[in-house]
Amino acid sequence: MSLLELNNLHVSFKTRHGEIKAVRGVDFWLDKAETLAIVGESGSGKSVTAQSVIGMIPRPHGRIVDGSVSFKGEDITKLPIKQYRKIRGKQIGMVFQDPMTALNPTMKIGHQIQEVFTKKLKQPKKLAKESAIKLLEEVGIKDPVSRYYDYPHQFSGGMRQRVVIAIALAANPSLIIADEPTTALDVTIQAQILALLKRIQKERETSILLITHDLGVVSEVADRVVVMYAGSVVETGTVQEIMETPKHPYTWGLLQSVPTVEGERQDRLKAIDGTPPDLSRPIVGCPFAARCPHAMEICAEQLPANENFSGTHKARCWLHDSRTKSYLELAAGGETSE
């Protein structure tokens, strides 16, 4: 049994312009001590999927329409709010992408970390303070005793992100959701934050659900990858499978849009032409069809089934259907593939 399993998850938001179907039939799993990265453009449904796991879908406009989120074998979407709050923070921690808005600017850093120990773990104040100081040291804050009394504005962006990670770790959760944890940080600080997450995961055997659009981050820390587009999963696989043998045209586009420092000079990045579909309207066929350079007539008419390439690698694309392969071979002059 996996630590976390999402099955046919659908999430919608009611707006003045109609219902926005932000997440459409998402399926994936996450095992103990594993890092799973969800990648895709802005608006692909990554963060909404993560919010569904931690029970932070904005209400009353947002709701889980269908599907399940199973954590340790229990569908937590069916839990009352009081029970969900016992899981949130204690068993599932969250690292937000903007530490300045995630932290309370009017509270000292130490007190914000200490709250987790007093409220979630019921530790007495003196012990909670000692635990908070120890945790500050663990995440790499120098002179943690004095920094305990500082406010968020007295820390750099990288140090604030370490504090947010400390808060997420305080109750020693089984799962940490990291939503763009290195956004707006320079490359050196990004590397430090990623190294910190990897070290903590190894020491505590924590599972990490990483939300990012940075494929460089994915290759550095993830074990497996889920590629999302227009609220749907279009490809999943190990990091090696996604980076070296991607199967979906959208994944090809993401990889081609990454700047390189090796090989021939790259004057301009290759962008994916077009725009994502309107999620307030029904999507017939493959959601990427309108932007795909390899699109065929059937792509706009019918959603392809998942094609399995290994026990861990699968993609939704008509290019890999056996009937399409036969057609392409005939169009190329009757050649057959080995």
Score class of each variant (00 low, 15 high):
131 S>D: 13
327 Y>H: 06
35 T>V: 14
18 G>P: 00
184 A>Q: 09
218 V>E: 03
249 P>L: 05
284 V>Y: 12
74 E>K: 15
3 L>F: 11
24 R>C: 02
317 C>T: 01
294 H>S: 14
71 F>H: 02
24 R>T: 02
163 V>D: 08
308 N>I: 09
325 K>R: 13
232 S>I: 12
22 A>I: 07
183 T>Q: 00
223 D>E: 00
330 L>C: 01
11 V>W: 09
96 F>N: 00
161 Q>A: 00
110 G>C: 12
3 L>T: 04
153 H>A: 04
54 I>A: 02
124 P>V: 08
70 S>V: 13
68 S>E: 12
12 S>Y: 15
239 V>D: 00
193 I>V: 14
298 I>A: 04
168 A>D: 05
16 R>W: 03
312 T>H: 14
276 P>K: 04
152 P>H: 04
119 K>A: 14
317 C>S: 11
336 T>N: 13
89 G>A: 04
94 M>N: 05
133 I>W: 10
40 G>S: 07
202 K>P: 09
132 A>S: 14
214 D>H: 08
133 I>A: 07
279 L>R: 03
182 T>E: 10
301 E>G: 07
283 I>A: 04
308 N>Y: 13
331 A>L: 13
52 S>K: 10
88 R>D: 01
266 Q>M: 15
330 L>F: 03
268 R>N: 13
293 P>N: 03
37 A>K: 08
204 R>H: 13
177 I>D: 05
154 Q>D: 07
7 N>Y: 11
145 V>K: 13
67 G>R: 09
170 A>M: 03
108 K>A: 11
